[in-house]
Nucleic acid binder design. Structure first.
Lengths: 155, 155
DNA sequence: TATGACCTTGGAGTGCACTCGAAGCAAGCG
DNA sequence: CGCTTGCTTCGAGTGCACTCCAAGGTCATA
């Protein structure tokens, strides 16, 4: 894939505008440093594994806030957008419905006053994940019982 | 190594008619003993939590083999059917597509010669479950990081 | 300047796993 | 006998999360 260079490097990027957007960012190394983070949609496809269709759809439904555009209207994703996508991907792995993720995104956009709501939402999600893990362990033991049956009886 | 029934055994439990149908049955206590296990669909709904529609649909797509009928054509589910539904529910929890479950059901119907295929299918499923659990643990740590951020910064 | 890969949009389509509806038959009860 | 409840069938509808399409504009390289 030809990684297009985004030569439109904004010279004056003010440092760290909204810490509320990505709270407690994970230890991720970004492909490019702040100031040069103007990724095309195909670059983001390469980084995240999501399709371009899905990325545009996320934006349309409000799961991502408005993405910067080049002077010709093409999307230019930032490092923060990448962080957000990482987080969203994690949430998706938990089985959280997209509508709930949108709800969370809205809370983020509303600012710091929604910290308690966000925490509650994440804690509920956490509980769901924990019980999901328990379910899977349970399933695992059923599978193991059957597999050991087939191992001894089936060969 | 056949798994023995664990404790509180039913008084007159028949010695395992068709081992091919439910291999290595889980330690489940049935609502009624063998011989009286002719459950109506609404009873099965109560036991399993599935809807009557779903139960009929399972039968239609081949996820369940033919269910016994009363003289008037109504379904009468057996204890073995209940066991199978339990197992299917477990498989569903793993996220296995229904088509794959149908494939497994077909293998069961084909008899003992498919033991190796069944084992392979279950082992693949097991691998999927294990990696899913790992993913969820990963997600859990991300959630915990964010939650602790909101705990300290958000109140 | 021309090529071809890449980008834009809104809306329509897909696949999965149910979920429901309509029309009709059968059993039990006052 | 009428009523209610529960069962039957097939086929159509739902909700989710994408996924794709058509028509057209943009961009770097030859």
């Amino acid at each position: 894939m030809t990684v297009m260079q985004t030569t439109t490097a904004a010279p004056t990027q003010q440092p760290d505008r909204t810490p509320a957007d990505i709270c407690s960012a994970p230890p991720r190394r970004h492909p490019r440093p702040e100031g040069q983070d103007h990724y095309t949609i195909s670059e983001v496809v390469a980084f995240t594994g999501l399709t371009a269709h899905t990325l545009r759809w996320y934006e349309r439904i409000g799961l991502m806030s408005h993405i910067d555009r080049s002077h010709t209207g093409q999307r230019r994703y930032s490092n923060r957008d990448l962080d957000w996508l990482d987080f969203v991907t994690k949430l998706r792995l938990t089985g959280m419905p997209v509508a709930d993720m949108v709800r969370y995104a809205e809370l983020v956009r509303e600012g710091e006053t929604t910290y308690p709501d966000r925490r509650e939402l994440l804690e509920q999600t956490r509980r769901d994940v924990v019980s999901r893990i328990a379910e899977l362990h349970d399933t695992l033991s059923v599978l193991d019982r059957k597999i050991s049956f087939y191992e001894t009886g089936g060969n």
